[in-house]
Amino acid sequence: MPVIWVMTMLSVRNLNAYYGESHVLRDVAVSVKQGEVVVMLGPNGHGKSTLLKSICGLVDQITGRINYKEEPITGMATENIVNLGLIYIAENRELFPHMTVLENLKLGAYAKNARPHEKGNLEWVFDLFPRLVERRKQLASTMSGGEARMLAVARGLMSNADFLCIDEPSLGLQPSLRHEIFSIIKQISKEGKTVLLVEQNIPQITELADRIYVMEEGQISFEGDKDEALGNEHLREIFLGM
């Protein structure tokens, strides 16, 4: 196989994270190359979200090394990390409930580096999520679960980030919406964004993923491409639901 040099966007080494007394991540190592869609699978409560939050500066107690575009970002404040082009899209959406869809989106472009691109990005996310166009004057708190999820992803895209950490985008969605959101993520990836995505156990995730990691009890228990994952009996049973 020819070796093609692709920039490593994100590299995580020896990452340990703690919430008070509990040791959530244990020596985690993950790397994501430019343009990849990497999926982190694993049961609930085993540290997948904590990994994404640690990367984006949302966990206070971490040790280890996180490099983004070959620069260390460990322990950096979230606002600076966002400004470098890394964004966290939360599983529970974390919208601003008493603001309209449009206001939520505009706040997504709060980072300094996102401001000059606000207009262009707004057009882009309205293209990706046509549903949000007609709802742009609606308050975020009055949206259905699926729409709120779309808004959360769209708000993340407004940050002009190159690297998206998406936390369980399909959680609680009906299959048709799930499919829709996955195809949008695919589209985003085609447009050059790099994606690190956390999911629990969805079969169709394999068609989206370039590579798969599995996290169990705060440790990486599997790393490989799609075919390897599908060939692994343990994974097939537990996470892919086949």
Binding site: L58, A90, L95, F96, P97, M99, L107, S159
Partner: peptide, 23 residues
Amino acid sequence: TRIGMAVQAVAQNPVGAKIVGIP
């Protein structure tokens, strides 16, 4: 104003405000 919206954002959802990069 941008700062005014940021103030409201922090009041409505501090976690969300942090995520989008509001200092």
